[in-house]
């Protein structure tokens, strides 16, 4: 790390992220700009929503922030220090920044118990912790994500849990290293509508009580408005609109944001339309 800067203001910053993919079809190659010049900063205790349709590059941003993906140019800075891609520095970075995957049915290893999933990150990031301490911390974390009593879940395997319970396990796993920044990649899109709110409320509650910085990636504008302070609208790899959550929703500037808003079901609007139809008859 030759580019070490003086420790700046606390925050997880994405600075001018660019990620291109080369697509080869036969002899021709073309370039796909998955992420084109995306910048934002997550502050502790704040939630930023990243909204956009499928394929807009949201998940690539999540994978770049969790260091699963390299960047073509631009970089990630944690408290003003460039995030590494390997080595002990990466381990330290990961103890601060964690990812919650979209699909809780795929992100837990079917072979291992719930306890294993929580204990491993605890062990990795606290090598000096004793086995019994690790265990009691793991149980604490399970209780923290409202899987109570934790003894009932600890020895189970993922397939014995519901989607919502699994996503709670995934959240506990992300908290285990002591993360202060959570990147949640569409954390509820694979869950039943009836349990989405519970998981989102849990995330919001954890965010408030632990002062987490959260990047909430979603395509649902309604929850984005409700759960976040700031909204970034992403379209084809670029951020086309950004601003205070209410401002973006109530006063959208970009045509794409308006299209997104119109696509969302709005009971009030439906009622108004019905009223108009009735009046015209």
């Amino acid at each position: 790390m030759t580019t070490r800067e003086p420790v700046g203001e606390p925050g997880l910053e994405a600075r001018r992220l660019v990620r291109d993919y080369r697509i080869r079809s036969g002899l021709r190659t073309s370039t796909l700009h998955a992420v084109a010049d995306v910048s934002f900063t997550i502050r502790p205790g704040r939630t930023i929503a990243l909204v956009g349709e499928s394929g807009s590059g949201k998940s690539t941003v999540a994978r770049i922030l969790s260091r699963l993906e390299t960047t073509t140019s631009g970089g990630v800075l944690l408290d003003g220090v460039a995030a590494p891609m390997r080595g002990a520095a990466l381990e330290r970075y990961r103890s601060r920044v964690q990812l919650v995957f979209q699909d809780p049915f795929a992100s837990l290893n079917p072979f291992h118990t719930i306890l294993h999933h929580i204990e491993r990150p605890l062990r990795i990031h606290n090598p000096r912790m004793s086995a019994s301490e690790v265990r009691s911390r793991a149980h604490e974390l399970l209780e923290r994500v409202q899987l109570t009593p934790s003894s009932r879940y600890a020895d189970r395997r993922p397939h014995e849990l519901s989607g919502g319970q699994r996503q709670r396990v995934a959240i506990a796993r992300a908290l285990a290293p002591g993360a202060t920044y959570i990147v949640a990649d569409e954390p509820v899109s694979m869950l039943d509508v009836s349990i989405r709110l519970g998981v989102l409320n849990l995330l919001a509650e954890l965010q408030r009580s632990e002062g987490l910085g959260v990047l909430y990636i979603t395509h649902d504008l309604a929850t984005a408005r409700h759960f976040s302070d700031e909204i970034l609208v992403m379209y084809r790899g670029e951020i086309v609109e950004r601003g205070d959550a209410d401002t973006v929703i109530l006063n959208p500037q970009h045509a794409y944001t308006r299209t997104l808003l119109d696509a969302a079901a709005d009971p009030d609007r439906l009622g108004r339309l019905r009223e108009e139809v009735r009046r015209s008859q």
Binding site: R67, L68, S95, F101, S107, L108, I124
Partner: peptide, 9 residues
């Protein structure tokens, strides 16, 4: 889940 264990370290 393999990516998740990479993220876990």
């Amino acid at each position: 889940y393999v990516a998740a264990s990479r993220v876990a370290g």
